[in-house]
Design a protein around this nucleic acid. Structure first.
Lengths: 234, 234
DNA sequence: TTATATAAGATAGTAATACTATTAAATTAA
DNA sequence: TTAATTTAATAGTATTACTATCTTATATAA
């Protein structure tokens, strides 16, 4: 594995590629810190510019608005996750074992992963938990989708759905199951921390969690239970 | 069943009870139309006031800000759902049948339900799909939670979790499963409409959907699959 | 009936947000 | 060295998210 992971993103996510300049890389790095700290609603380009001793106008030359910047950061994260999943599963032959590895990565922390130049992946992971749903829960979702701004998430979802179909080719909801796993992983990390009465998932101070147990049980139960008998299985 | 359903909500959700006055009821009614139309981000109290030929200052006498208004509307919805679930399950003895009815209500449209004075429940249901996650995905979630603003959702979740435990007392994730059903139902209604490549769930023009099939299969597979064998079930 | 409390409307004003535009200085590329 | 590009500095606008005050209409209580 090379020391630096380079991630290519859809050009419509930015006005000027932030990877190409020092200022651009600073915008990405500092926006991750600041969104993590303030939350997306309280985050503004003005605060970001002050934080990095630059100007609002300069930030606007890289990103059209803060929503596009959020889409950029989240796309970056899905790309990174995609890379990690490929790295940890390409040598695994058994599709059930692949899915189990995927779930472990989805549910786990990122402490022992290779460092990525410029990006605090743990802060970014927290942003994804708290803010990722806001990337698409808007009135502009159809426009953004046509522009390809959700492509990375959709292709990652499809990739894992193919693993699901390898496990059980007759399962009729592979994409629905996988997107549920993605969404559920984020939601329960959030619930465990802020609304614990909504889940039995626990986050220990060590970073350990039983989230993977819950997700694995959910996924493998579904995949091993024939659909036709669902209505009479109990 | 009485013609009008009266729903009592946590007093911290509002400054003045909107149910008590004509203006208050208009605020609730018109905010539902307008949030549904514009989306929560583009919705403002100024636009609402113009829409109802009142003033911004008057709206602020009822709700502290638009986030509290959203919390109010969503709490109202969970209360209404709670009422419908109780009504449709209280005569059902079998817990599996109860859960199946719950899932049908969660996944279904509301066209044939008793009308609720003043509230367009179909518009409100669309708001819940698109905006409900934003009610808690904020930096203020812990404060809001301490103030009891999520109580209705949490108690509804708990109520259904007790049904889950009736079905399988050994199942270790009853609240997690139920909150997953709630969140997944909303997400897939949204995906079916806007990001269809993320789900096999379909929304027909008639309002029919296979969402309940997906959710039922997910839930009942989990509940019929012993946890200890999860890791070797395939 | 009159006093009085309360709700609502009208108006004004502030600080912050989400931008756009212009110009000048600094850097880099030809 | 000149020309092009990038960034910084500054200014400005429309909108948002409020707060404050004052007046008028209406309901109720004495």
């Amino acid at each position: 594995m090379s020391a630096t992971i380079r991630i290519e993103l859809n050009e419509k996510l930015f006005l000027r590629d932030p990877e190409q300049t020092e200022l651009g890389r600073t915008i990405v790095k500092e926006s991750i810190r600041l969104i993590d700290e303030l939350g997306f609603e309280h985050f503004t380009f003005k605060k970001l510019a002050q934080h990095m001793a630059s100007t609002e106008a300069s930030v606007y030359r890289y990103f059209e608005n803060k929503h596009k910047l959020l889409l950029y950061l989240i796309s970056w994260y899905w790309n990174w996750l995609d890379y990690r999943i490929s790295y940890h599963t390409h040598h695994v032959a058994n599709p059930s074992e692949k899915l189990r590895t995927f779930i472990r990565i989805l549910a786990g922390s990122h402490g022992s992963e290779p460092l990525v130049a410029n990006v605090d992946v743990n802060a970014l992971a927290r942003i994804v938990v708290q803010e990722a749903s806001k990337a698409y829960l808007t009135k502009e979702v159809d426009t953004d989708n046509k522009a390809g701004l959700f492509k990375d998430y959709k292709s990652l979802c499809h990739k894992v759905a193919l693993i699901v179909l390898e496990i059980n080719p007759a399962y009729p909801f592979p994409h629905a199951l996988v997107s549920t796993l993605f969404e559920t992983a984020r939601k329960h990390l959030f619930f465990a921390q802020h609304l614990p009465s909504l889940t039995e998932v626990k986050l220990e101070s060590t970073g350990k969690t039983n989230l993977a147990d819950f997700l694995s049980h959910l996924a493998f139960s579904s995949l091993s239970n024939p659909v036709s008998s669902a209505d009479s299985s109990l």
